[in-house]
Computed example of a mutant assay.
Amino acid sequence: MPPRKPPRAVVRRAPRQQRAHDTVAIILEAAQQILRAHGLPGFNTNRIAERAGVSVGSLYGYFPNKQSILLALARRLLAEDREAFLAALAAADEATVDPIRRLVRVLLARHAHDAPVRRVLLGVYMGAGLAGDDAHHIAQLTEAVASHPQGPRAARALAPIQLFVIARAVLGVARALTDARDGPALPMQAVEDEAVKLVNAYLLAATPSDAGGNAAANSVNSASSSARMPSSP
C-alpha cells in the first residue's frame, strides 16, 4: 500500500486580488485568536468566521476545513521564524551583540513566545506528514548560517555534519521551550547564556573534517533529501 501523501494545498482558492489576500489574512488572524483563546477543542469554523466578520460560506471558499486553516497558520508561523532568523543573520556584522548570541536569542524567543499556540500548530503540522518539509526548512536556515561570512561558522571551519549536529542541538533547546508545560518557567537569560556556551564549546572542540566526516555528512544529506517533501513551509 503506497504511503499516504500529505496535503499539498492549504488554501482551496488561491487569492488573486488584494481584497482576497486581505480576506485570507483576516481569517488567519481570527483563527489564531480563536486558537489562543479556546485551544484546539474550541477551534471551529463558525467561531473563526464570526471573529473574522465573514460568512462561513466565504471562509469555505478559501479553506475546505479547519485542518487546512491550522496548516496555513503553521506555515505562516514557520515563515515568520525564517524571516526573523534571517534578519538576525543579516545584522550579524554589527558589533553590539556577537553573531552567535544574536541568532540563539532570536531562536529561543520565537519558540518561547505564544508557546501553547505554537505547540498545537507544530503538532498538527507534523501530524499531517510534513516532517520532511520541516527538515527542509531547517536545512535552508542552516545553509544560510553556513554561507554567511559573519555567521558562527566563520569562527571555525565546520563540516556539514558538524553544522548539522550543533544546529539540531540548539534547535532542540528551543523546541523544549515550546513543549514545556509544567513546572516553573525557565529564566530566559540563563537559557540563552547556556545555549551560547553550548555553541561556543562545540566550535572550540570542532576539528576540520576528514574523509570519513564528509562521507557521514553526505549520508545525512542523502537521508534528509529522501525524506523531503515537494513543497516547503
Rank of each mutant, 00 (worst) to 15 (best):
A215K: 13
N218M: 10
G172T: 00
P187N: 01
S209A: 15
Q32S: 12
V117S: 14
G39M: 06
L40R: 15
P149K: 00
A128L: 08
P230L: 05
R105K: 14
R153M: 03
P233A: 13
L77N: 13
A159W: 01
E29F: 05
A14C: 08
H21W: 14
E80P: 04
Q140W: 04
R75K: 07
G61N: 02
I69T: 02
G53Y: 01
V54W: 01
R181V: 14
R181S: 15
I26Y: 03
V104K: 09
V120F: 07
R101M: 10
L122A: 08
R168H: 15
R168A: 13
R102G: 12
S224L: 15
G212D: 14
A37C: 11
G61I: 01
S209M: 13
R153C: 02
V173I: 11
T178I: 09
A167I: 03
S209R: 10
I48E: 06
H38M: 09
N214V: 06
I69V: 12
R228Y: 04
A185N: 00
D81G: 07
A167P: 03
L77G: 13
E83I: 07
F164W: 04
D179T: 04
R16V: 03
D22I: 10
D93Q: 10
H148Q: 11
S226Q: 13
R19T: 05
V120S: 09
D182Q: 12
L130C: 01
L158D: 03
R119M: 09
F63N: 10
L71C: 08
I161Q: 05
R12K: 15
P149Y: 01
A115V: 05
A169Q: 08
N214W: 13
L122Q: 12
D182L: 15
S231Y: 10
V170R: 07
S232V: 07
P208M: 05
P41T: 05
K66R: 15
S222H: 12
A201E: 14
V173E: 04
S225H: 09
A155C: 00
D114G: 06
A52Q: 02
P116E: 04
A14T: 09
A49V: 00
V165S: 02
S147W: 12
A87Q: 14
I69F: 02
L73H: 00
D114N: 13
R12W: 15
G53H: 01
L89S: 03
A144P: 01
T45M: 14
A25D: 14
T207D: 11
R156P: 01
A52E: 01
A72E: 11
A195K: 03
N46S: 14
A216D: 08
V145A: 04
Q150F: 12
V196T: 08
D114M: 07
L71K: 08
A216H: 11
D98G: 05
S68V: 03
